[in-house]
Nucleic acid binder design. Structure first.
Length: 678
RNA sequence: GCUGUUGUAGCUCAGUGGUAGAGCACGUCCUUGGUAAGGACGAGGUCGAGGGUUCAAGUCCCUUCAACAGCUCCA
């Protein structure tokens, strides 16, 4: 099915880790100018040279390899190429050894400016990206790259030893610089990122100026692995994904559920303060609902297939309906519906090809891919006056999306997830204040969790495009509102023209985790489109119907992704208010069991999540276990404490905090939890 | 979805065609010890699933499922 460019509320899904690979701008859309390339940092220059050395090494072993593109990337470099031999990690050692040899040979990187004709001739002979001429094996990717070089731009190649490559540079002087290098992984890629252009092998490596930096990089990687939410989720028993339940479907185990519940309680409190109303909606809705919203069938590929009514299913089976026919009948609309929608939106939203006789139409249900339509129906369920606005409907709404299997990742990319969603319906004049309110909510959330390292992207319309709905005046106001709101946050923000959805501008929060990876989580989006499609209205002061503006927002994005990011953010050491187990009482000997039980009951009665370890282990072992479970507070109880009605407090990160009366500890920890201290 | 890698006890992993292993966790018992591992014994596995080759398969081959890395995608 051709992908329609119709963009709909893109709530919370665009979030993904910043790509480790080359920025797309290097690949296709925005070709880097020579000037921009010349600004490569020293490290990037080194890594780019390493890519050439790697290509040289590969050619020495497999002379048939045809190279495409080999840039430096955030954590290293790669080279894309095609050859008969399929690389596996077993080949790395051999290639690395050859690379080290080339570094020792200390070849000079020499630049030669050549004419387009010379470049083409070299490519045709297979010389470009090769160690020698290769008759019958022309440098086909290089030919294509030459074609893409604009007329008038300098064409150059770089030579080190026998290897000549089409390359604008820059490079280091000699290959001896390229000795602190390591091949990290092999994978596949598409030429120019285009699936139709065939698959290439992509070999990744990394390189540093010094051996120490190279080693430190791998130590850092190890550290990152230790705080991987998938690993910690298992160790701390936060969640489970079960093959029999299905890919990308999170089972929140008790510890994780506690964490989530605390987060939801927190956000619910903030919502109440801001005048939101809590609603509940079911997990499915009729197909017609999503035909109205426009999410079906346009995003059909990303949804679970429709659920058909039993009697309809029986009937079409009886009719011997083919699968293709059934699909067409599910996708289709009545002429009346199409006319209505096209009139409302003022454009051909539903083409003739989708219109079908009413008796042939099939209806069914969809697992909801987003919550907006349900909330819209709540808004529309009663007459609204301008005095009622803004209406703010909030729900922890679970949605389902059919993500491709290769895209699933722990909690951060899943097929069923719960958004901390809300939809605001307001007047045009209220947009600015409401956007501001949404942002301050996001800010409260992030501050409370100590996530201070974030930036904000303001997606504005592309002034040269006519694809947007709504009047230019509306847009100017909405964009100004977003811009102003973003300014008040006091964090870096970038304006990105052309990044708006077609239905309105948006603000995305991109959060940096402790190891520097970026994740897009919360978002606030202004929407002029859905109110039109659903023909929403309210009565104004002039006693006439007016169209409300909708705002979609979700500060966490989804509970799943946010929890995943949070696990990594805290490396499993949650602040006390979030910790699944807040206090663990550790007894030194059986002699204090009675006292320990007393303390346990007291803390439990105070609402703390406390456990008692009265096993026969020695205190050292008990402390070790509690540390591994990352329990914030350990209370060590021996005969001294029992006699003084006190507890010896040990904090998992701060260590021994000394002995204090039970009442004092209780008071302190309660205040800490209540204040959601970090 | 594509390419590659991996799949053995609850967890981390060893096991190169010939009787399934270790550490931790778990259970029982002994030990009552003061801030990151006391000791003994025990239980636990149709080696992801299905098929094939072989006298013999955890090990070789095919199919399939899942995870991981990357690509592509992401309302």
């Amino acid at each position: 099915m051709p992908r329609k460019f119709l963009k709909l509320p893109r709530l919370l899904r665009s979030a993904h880790p910043a790509p480790h690979s080359a920025p797309l701008s290097l690949m296709s859309a925005e070709r880097k100018t020579l000037e921009e390339r010349a600004q490569m940092s020293d490290l990037e220059r080194l890594r780019h040279s390493c890519a050439h050395v790697m290509a040289t090494a590969i050619l020495r072993i497999w002379p048939d390899a045809q190279f495409a593109y080999g840039p430096p990337v955030e954590n290293g470099f790669y080279y894309d190429f095609d050859m008969k031999h399929r690389l596996t990690p077993d080949d790395f050692e051999k290639i690395e050894a050859e690379m080290k040899k080339i570094a020792k040979e200390n070849q000079r990187f020499e630049k030669k400016v050549i004419s387009r004709e010379e470049a083409i001739a070299l490519a045709k002979s297979g010389r470009l990206g090769g160690l020698s001429e290769r008759p019958g094996n022309e440098s086909r990717f290089k030919l294509d790259l030459i074609e893409k070089i604009p007329e008038g731009e300098e064409i150059s190649c770089f030579q080190n030893g026998d290897f000549i490559d089409l390359c604008a540079g820059p490079h280091v002087g000699y290959t001896s610089k390229c000795k602190n290098v390591k091949i990290t992984s092999v994978s596949s890629s598409f030429y120019m990122g285009d699936e139709s252009k065939g698959q290439l092998q992509r070999l990744y490596g990394t390189a540093f100026e010094s051996k120490e930096e190279l080693e430190a990089y791998f130590v850092r990687l190890e550290e990152a692995k230790k705080r991987d939410h998938r690993r910690l989720g298992k160790e701390l028993k936060l969640f489970h994904i079960d093959e029999d339940v299905g890919q990308g479907l999170i089972l929140w185990t008790p510890n994780g559920a506690t964490l989530r519940q605390e987060l939801q309680t927190f956000i619910s409190e903030e919502l109440r303060k801001q005048g939101y109303s809590q609603v509940f909606t079911p997990h499915i809705g009729k197909l017609a609902l999503y035909k109205t919203s426009g999410h079906f069938p346009y995003y059909k590929d990303a949804q679970f297939p429709a659920i058909m009514e039993p009697d309809q299913l029986e009937q079409i089976a009886h009719e011997g309906c083919s699968c293709a026919e059934m699909t067409a009948r599910i996708d289709a609309c009545s002429a009346q519906f199409a006319a209505q929608m096209n009139e409302r939106t003022g454009r051909e939203m539903i083409g003739k090809e989708r219109i079908m006789d009413a008796e042939k139409l099939l209806d069914g249900f969809l697992l909801k891919p987003m919550n907006c339509p349900h909330h819209i129906k709540i808004f529309a369920s009663q007459p609204r006056s301008y005095r009622d606005l803004p209406v703010r409907l909030a729900e922890f709404g679970t949605v389902y999306r059919w993500e491709q299997s290769g895209e699933l990742n722990g909690m951060t990319r899943v097929r069923g997830f719960t958004q901390d969603d809300a939809h605001l319906f307001c007047t045009e004049d209220q947009v600015a204040a409401e956007v501001l309110g949404c942002l301050s909510l996001v800010k409260v959330v992030l501050n409370t969790l100590g996530m201070s390292d974030y930036r904000v992207r303001v997606g504005l319309r592309d002034p040269d495009s006519g694809k947007y709905t709504g009047s230019p005046e509306q847009w100017d106001r909405a964009e100004a509102a977003c811009r102003e709101a973003a300014k008040t946050l006091g964090v870096p923000f970038s304006e990105e023209p052309g990044e708006a959805a077609f239905y309105g501008p948006k603000i995305d929060f991109v959060i940096k985790d402790v190891i520097g990876r970026e994740w897009q989580l919360g978002t606030v989006q202004v929407d002029y489109q859905l109110p039109i499609r659903f023909d929403l209205s309210y009565t104004g002061a002039d006693n006439k119907p007016h169209r409300p503006v909708m705002i979609h927002r979700a500060p966490f994005g989804s509970m799943e992704r946010f929890t995943g990011v949070l696990i990594e953010h805290f490396a499993g050491h949650f602040p006390t208010w979030l910790a699944p187990e807040q206090v663990r009482i550790l007894t030194i000997s059986e002699k204090v069991d009675a006292f320990a039980n007393e303390v346990f009951e007291q803390l439990k009665a105070a609402g703390l999540r406390v456990t008692l370890n009265d096993d026969a282990d020695k205190i050292g072992a008990k402390i070790r276990l509690a540390q591994l479970d990352k329990v914030p507070y350990m209370l060590v109880l021996g005969e001294k404490e029992a006699a003084a009605q006190s507890v010896a407090v040990r904090h998992s990160k701060k260590g021994d905090l000394g002995v204090k009366p039970v009442a004092q500890f209780l008071e302190e920890i309660t205040a800490e939890v209540r204040g959601r201290s970090l």
